[in-house]
Design a protein around this nucleic acid. Structure first.
Lengths: 202, 202, 202, 202
DNA sequence: TGATAACCGAGACGGTACGTCCTGTCTTACA
DNA sequence: TGTAAGACAGGACGTACCGTCTCGGTTATCA
């Protein structure tokens, strides 16, 4: 990879310091001033960088935001995995409660809304998001469900994608549309309802 | 109420023609140029209206969009109701397929994304949306589930809000984040999975 | 005159109270906010009057200002006359010093600049000014000079209009263009120089 | 001075083409549409320039106009001098007739009225005018009078400033206030009256 | 060990849109 | 009919950013 760097030739000279300053500034600024007032000009000024440096390396404001999120998750990469105590319901509740906590965290609220806004209007960014950020996370979730499925705790014919979306979709939606209080209790109710289904059991 | 109209006095002079022209222009424009390029200036020009007339009556671009959606649904109000053939699964599939069709309709895609974007960043607008647009729709959905519940087709202790969000949340989310193809088959899978639950049924 | 009022028919119903309020408001406002920020809207608001009432009775902002000046001079009309002590030079110095004092009076500075600005760009207003405000004043000045001429104190073939303008023109000009300090000494110097001429006497 | 240019640094990047386009547009426009309808927006559009480029370099519309006048006189600078044939009266008449012609020239009428209007309400602009435009012209006039004074054609104790203002003031004033026809005959009368004084000679 | 080419900060540039203010006209309700 | 009030279409204000550009200055590679 390092040797290939030279192949793309121009990227070699890219200033890592500027890149970091820009991403940090973008993330901080969106928090401070909100999505509506986030501007390339403001990011450049805050980062102590020329506007051209942003335009040179990123195709859109959304991509800057996207990279800022990527940078955040860079340290913890490794081989993250969802908890598996054997108690699927408890594990799912724990994970969904964590999701609720993150969505309610004021430090991430505005930046995540901003990123979602951009994704909503930019298919290219949506694809990048699906591949780089949401994809790995979703695979983890699918993996946990797959393990449970193998253990006979989930239906054999269960579509894991649908299952994941049925668990997280309601949360995401409540958060984006502010369609109700986003609490641990809600997370628990979603897990229970999803596992048991809407129909009466037996 | 009609007799009290005179009391509020100034709103009485409001031009209904301008109001309609603005809402129509807003809806049409967001479709043609996209959310990012939707401007108050553009709406005013398209509607043949002074900008001040927009600023006088609406607090934000999002509220204009919101009213434009309200206007759309004005004719069909009456006593809409979700289909009830007795076959809950079939009925839900029909309704979710209709939702999918609407979300995929290019005439509504951009306007709805635009509205959702504004909602995402404006709690006041989110509240208005929840009360005036989403609320009535959700009540219809809850009502259909309530009927099924009474008929013994749904669990007695089911939280209908959670149920509704578990059915529609995944669709909304796929659409907003473009997290996969939004097809009738997907709608069917969501209905089946939600009804049966993730766990093996005996 | 009173009887003819009704002949012009519509003017009969004109509200004198509104007229005075408007003129007073115009004069006061131009002083407070300056010519550049003087607006019909502002005058109407200050006068507690509808905008239409101004547009109905005055053709332009300049005419309102003009009438405001007319109103000021209404009380003192009668048969004003310039001092005539027999000492022409002393009399002229006194009058020009009075002019200087008036031009330096902060209460009249802005309003007079405003009026002059409008005159400068509106021939109709200029004509009205020449006839109703400047004309009578000029006639007084001419009259004083005419008396002096008859007494042999001024050249027989002197063009009194030229004489008046040579005395007051320099003052007006210094004031309008702020082309130097506008003092009593300057007024005296102008009188002396004008009376004696530029050439050496003998 | 040339070497210090780099020190002021940012002004170095100023676009000379834009500057000229703006000044030309301003001068032309004020002629075409008149002072009242002269707008920064209009100047920018006519010059093919962003509004910000005007706001960046000029503090007011008046200063733009002022610079436009400066630009006009730039070519002819050198060592202009008033005619000196030895016949002071003839020379002054020639110069005042030229002034009259210029004031009557429709190409300069509106622009000069506009500039004078701005000067009338902006002391800073008035100072700039006095120093850069009116000052040099006045010095020329004073110089011609000084030469005549040395030749014994003017009174020894004559205040040249007063003399200049007594010659040109009446013209300026007639022009600004449209206080009468501005003709060559008037110019001649002013010269004769000023030279001889109002009093009978002998 | 220069030459040279890309990056960098800075920020001017032509533009678009903002949200506000005012214009002159029109409409409503009252006296 | 005149009036206070104020909505209306329109247009300019002065500001903020957009995305492009040009300017010197600084690396970092190649001749």
């Amino acid at each position: 990879m390092t040797t290939l760097r030279k192949a793309s030739s121009n990227a070699a000279r890219r200033s890592e310091a500027s890149r970091q300053a820009i991403l940090t500034a973008a993330f901080d600024l969106v928090n401070e001033v909100g999505y509506a007032k986030l501007s390339i000009e403001g990011i450049a000024a805050r980062a102590g960088v020329g506007k051209q440096t942003i335009y040179r390396w990123w195709p859109s404001k959304g991509m800057v935001l996207f990279d800022a999120f990527l940078m955040l998750g860079e340290g913890s990469d490794g081989e993250a995995v969802l908890p598996d105590t054997g108690d699927l319901e408890a594990d799912l509740k724990a994970v969904l409660r964590a999701t609720v906590a993150e969505l309610n965290d004021p430090r991430y609220d505005e930046p995540m809304r901003a990123l979602n806004t951009e994704i909503m209007h930019d298919p290219a960014l949506a694809a990048a998001y699906a591949e780089r950020l949401d994809g790995p996370m979703k695979e983890l979730k699918r993996q946990r469900l797959r393990d449970a499925q193998r253990a006979g705790q989930l239906a054999d014919d269960l579509d894991l994608d649908v299952a994941v979306e049925m668990l997280w979709g309601p949360l995401l939606n409540r958060w984006l549309q502010r369609g109700g209080p986003l609490t641990s209790e809600y997370a628990d109710a979603v897990v229970e309802t999803a596992l048991n289904g809407l129909r009466p059991r037996r």
